[in-house]
């Protein structure tokens, strides 16, 4: 049951990475997608990241009941959990909802209104023209969004911690700057690239094979988000298991 859609997904990806007819047109589309996905998602990523950091600080402080554990640990926990898990994974899940549903419904609508057929009749490799710019746009912009998310999450944690009195500014910064393992950042970037690929390719697959009308476009969009979220969490575990 899983092999048929998996095979179709792989064949679609093979068509996506076929040599483009004209790079200049693809380049234009790539910049358009980078702007839409990157700049267009900046607002929501900023908002969720600040709150992620703030909640992590407050909850970590709540659980630190022992006087034997210094409060500076909070800074380290916020840093590491933001870099390794919260920023890449939560951002990816939010972006699966925002970008994934948009990609699936855009391509799905093009399918049911015969716009994809029109591209193919013209001799254009429609998977390449429609999906490749989205994948490239996502795998370049989502890691940048994750970097911004990490920074804002730490800022959010610092602000919440100092404002609530859970941790002093000095202790937070002390924890933040001690025992940093740079490899965690590499893991975070690997995750964000993989998540970006999952979000766009799964959504594009769902949209590309939409049949029917408006109802089916909506269903494809929902399926794209649900499957992307599951795949993101699965990939999250695999990457953590392999790299850490």
């Amino acid at each position: 049951m899983i092999f048929y859609p998996l095979g179709k997904y792989i064949l679609l990806l093979k068509a996506v990475f076929r040599k483009p007819e004209k790079w200049s047109l693809y380049r234009k589309e790539i910049f358009h997608e980078m702007n839409y996905m990157g700049v267009g998602s900046l607002g929501i990523i900023c908002i969720i990241s600040i709150f992620l950091g703030a909640v992590t600080t407050v909850q970590t402080a709540f659980q630190l009941v022992s006087d034997l554990v210094p409060k500076s640990v909070i800074g380290g926990i916020v840093r590491d959990s933001s870099i390794l898990e919260l920023s890449p994974t939560i951002s990816a899940i939010v972006l699966a909802g925002k970008i994934g549903s948009s990609v699936a419904s855009q391509i799905g609508t093009m399918r049911v209104t015969e716009q994809i057929d029109a591209l193919e009749i013209m001799g254009i490799n429609s998977p390449g023209y429609l999906i490749l710019p989205k994948i490239i746009g996502a795998i370049t912009m989502i890691p940048l969004l994750v970097i911004i998310s990490i920074a804002l999450s730490i800022v959010g944690g610092y602000l919440a911690g100092t404002a609530s009195g859970a941790v002093t500014p000095q202790s937070f910064i002390e924890g933040l700057t001690s025992d940093f393992i740079p490899f965690t950042f590499t893991v975070s970037m690997v995750k964000s690239v993989i998540f970006a690929f999952i979000i766009t390719s799964v959504a594009a697959y769902q949209g590309f094979y939409t049949h029917g009308g408006a109802l089916e476009v909506g269903q494809s969009s929902t399926k794209a988000v649900v499957i992307s979220c599951i795949m993101i969490l699965f990939a999250d575990y695999i990457v953590a298991q392999l790299l850490l």
């Binding site: 007819e21 209104t113 015969e114 716009q115 057929d117 029109a118 193919e120 009749i121 013209m122 001799g123 490799n125």
Partner: peptide
């Protein structure tokens, strides 16, 4: 692809890129 560049098609719903 080469043959398709010699084909023009008018679709039932026009299929214009919106």
């Amino acid at each position: 692809t080469h043959v398709r560049t010699e084909i023009g098609m008018l679709f039932q719903g026009s299929a214009l890129f919106d």
